[in-house]
Amino acid sequence: MPDDYRQYLIRLIAMHGISEIMGALPEKEWVPRAPTLHRKLAILAKVQDELGHGQLLLRVAEDLVAPLGMNREDLLNGLFQGTIHFHNVFHMPAPTWADAGIIGWLVDGAAIITQGMLAQGSYAPYCRALERIIAEESFHIQHGESICIALAEGTRAQRQMLQEALNRWWEPLIFFFGPPPKSELTKHQDLGLMYRLRNKTNEELRQRFFHKYVPRIQALGLTIPDPNLRLDKETNTWHYTQPDWSKFKAILRNEGPMSRARLTLRHSAWEQNRWVREVLSTRAAVAV
């Protein structure tokens, strides 16, 4: 395996796996607070799947870093030291139950678009993991849809809660697919195309998201918080307000609203429970 191909894969898959682990945290906030027993079970299962996806992806990344003398401990330390980034959406606050619904519906909806493309890439172990993941994501989207539709059909306060959550998540969703072409930020995108790990640009994926979800969001009577959003029927292209991409860069540097809090939560749990991982490690049992 060429070195730069390995390096690209490590960067891609470690970030993906770490993002799944960190991605459990915003929704996890709502697991103990889910408003019915059914919702409690479903959101528990959903967050569990995210952790399971993290497990699959980290295993693939761990096998890639093993020849470099590294393992899972190093990947997690990379997260804590800021050398491995996690996805921009998971730096955002989720202050209401509706946020849990929007994450399940639209963030997972965006994720399945990206993952569907990545699953056709050139590295088989990654594609195998993605196949397992995609099979579960369809449940996640329906779980999110179910929460959002219940709120949309509900009281005025519930609808307002949903609209406010959409307002909060719209910009992170635009950020989700990464910057458009001809930006200094897209060099990784080009390498990905070169190595046949992706066959679509960030903008193509974002357009696909608009085509699929804008009509559905509108069908629930919600207002998308972008007055410039419109479909150019001739070119079949959505026009939208360009967000401030320097903000995106700052989020990835762990300068988002919840970056520090979530990293601290994850890091302190990891350190406090190191003694348990010692029990699970190859470190020999000491006779007691």
Partner: peptide
Amino acid sequence: ERLEYHIY
């Protein structure tokens, strides 16, 4: 010291 694990 860094922990090592068995892969199953």
